[in-house]
């Protein structure tokens, strides 16, 4: 804000002081939010790291099991068992709030399908295929949970970035400009006060000389 645009009056000064107070309290709140989000982010990051490790471990386990099942039973038998599977994994999406920010909450309803509900015969389907199916169900569940944590982490990062801009704007631009305006108005008002006093003294002197 250029000083030329400021009207140096008492009411503007009062208004500017009010704005400074409001900006400072807003700045404090945003700073607290930013710090809170950063703490939350580090917690989520730890969780995300753990989830990524779990996804990798479950993936390797599932792949090993499917490779063993394909080797022992043959790819045809594995493919055929996969054809028989019934039901798609269900994912239930809802929302939760972290410091006013909406993040997704994902619940995997895929779980572990009981052997009797898989869709293929119990007697002839080998334990190798059964183990592979279970391992992949576990992987799917872990991946859904990992997706929740990863999305939350990305949303948190975006929110931290936004909040950082909201903190920086008052800290480095709004508040200093308002303070500068306040100082300018105060200086102008003092200056006008002094001019007024001198004018009054001058008038008094003139009146005394006339008497």
């Amino acid at each position: 804000m250029s000083t030329q645009e400021i009207t140096p009056t008492r009411s503007v000064l009062l208004e500017t002081k009010k704005k400074i107070k409001l900006s400072q309290s807003g700045y404090k709140i945003m700073k607290m939010k930013r710090d809170g989000l950063i703490i939350e982010f580090f917690e989520i990051m730890e969780k995300a790291k753990e989830m990524r490790d779990r996804v990798v471990a479950d993936y390797l386990n599932a792949m090993e099991k499917i490779h063993i099942a394909s080797a022992v039973e043959g790819a045809i038998a594995v493919k055929s068992a996969a054809y028989a599977l019934k039901g798609d994994p269900q994912v239930c999406l809802s929302c939760k709030s972290i410091m006013g920010m909406t993040v997704p909450k994902v619940d995997a309803e895929c779980g572990c399908t009981p052997i009797l509900d898989r869709g293929y015969g119990v007697i002839s389907t080998s334990a190798y295929i059964e183990e592979a199916a279970k391992a992949f169900e576990k992987l799917l569940e872990t991946m859904v949970l990992a997706a929740e944590v990863e999305t939350t982490m990305k949303r948190l990062l975006d929110e931290i970035e936004k909040t950082k801009r909201r903190v920086n704007a008052p800290e480095f631009k709004v508040i200093p400009e308002l303070q500068e305006a306040e100082a300018f108005i105060e200086f102008r008002l003092e200056e006008m006060e002094r001019e007024n006093t001198i004018r009054l003294k001058h008038l008094k002197r003139k009146a005394e000389a006339a008497q």
Partner: peptide, 14 residues
């Protein structure tokens, strides 16, 4: 009713 082959396959094996 449910599209599952479980009972059919087990019957075939038996």
């Amino acid at each position: 009713s449910d599209g599952r082959l479980t009972a059919l396959e087990d019957f075939l094996d038996k």
